[in-house]
């Protein structure tokens, strides 16, 4: 059926070429809302990755039994189930992070990235490619959220993963970076930078 090489490509494409946040602009709500620190970005990324892998696997398994008319509600129920799992897990084992993420963990249900993978990939492909596709997409989501969270935490709080890099005496943190405006600014500039690099690389070929 599918060769090894294409399986690896299914995984790889989500990390850069079809990255959910920087290329497809999906999942912007969590990418903007919870990336005020690197830890929050990482937690949100990992939770979403867990949900997208599990839901893609289930959607792929049952893809032949779901009538077309009710497929979206079906996907949402499947996704909601895994989101509840992730939410309860975070609350039980990482209460501080769970509190910091607030309503954004339950809101993973409506993350377009997860719905997109179910609708465009998992519902049309066998289980193994679907899982790899979800894994790649999730990895792409995690790295962007961690990078965004790191930029905003370094500039807005002078620390990274809670470790102080720049003390208050030598650096006055830019309060704006941990506010919503800072999220839009950093995400916009990050996408601009990546588009610029991509264009330059295409121009060089």
């Amino acid at each position: 059926m599918t060769s090894q090489r294409t399986l690896f490509q299914e995984f790889k494409k989500g990390i850069w070429a079809e990255n959910p946040v920087i290329k497809m602009l999906l999942g912007m709500c969590p990418a903007l809302a919870v990336t005020n620190s690197a830890v929050n970005g990482l937690a949100m990324g990992l939770a979403s990755t867990f949900v997208v892998i599990c839901s893609s696997a289930i959607v792929s398994i049952i893809r032949r039994f779901v009538p077309g008319g009710v497929r979206i509600p079906t996907y949402i129920i499947i996704i909601a189930g895994f989101v509840t799992l992730a939410d309860l897990f975070l609350r039980a084992y990482f209460p501080v992070i769970s509190k910091a993420l607030g309503p954004y963990v339950p809101l993973i249900v409506v993350n377009c990235m997860i719905m997109g993978r179910a609708e465009f990939f998992a519902s049309k492909h066998p289980v193994v490619p679907s899982i790899l596709d979800a894994l790649g997409t999730g990895t792409g989501f995690v790295w962007v959220l961690v990078v965004l969270g790191s930029i905003r935490e370094i500039l807005g709080s002078g620390s990274i993963f809670g470790v102080t890099l720049l003390s208050e005496r030598i650096y006055t943190p830019w309060v704006v970076m941990i506010l919503p405006a800072g999220a839009f600014l950093s995400l916009g500039l990050l996408i601009a930078l990546i588009n610029y690099l991509t264009q330059r690389r295409q121009g060089a070929h």
Binding site: T172, W174, V175, V176, M177, L179, A181, G182
Partner: peptide
């Protein structure tokens, strides 16, 4: 405006 948002106290 950026400075106002970045350094609201200063």
């Amino acid at each position: 405006a950026f400075l106002q948002a970045a350094y609201p106290v200063l």
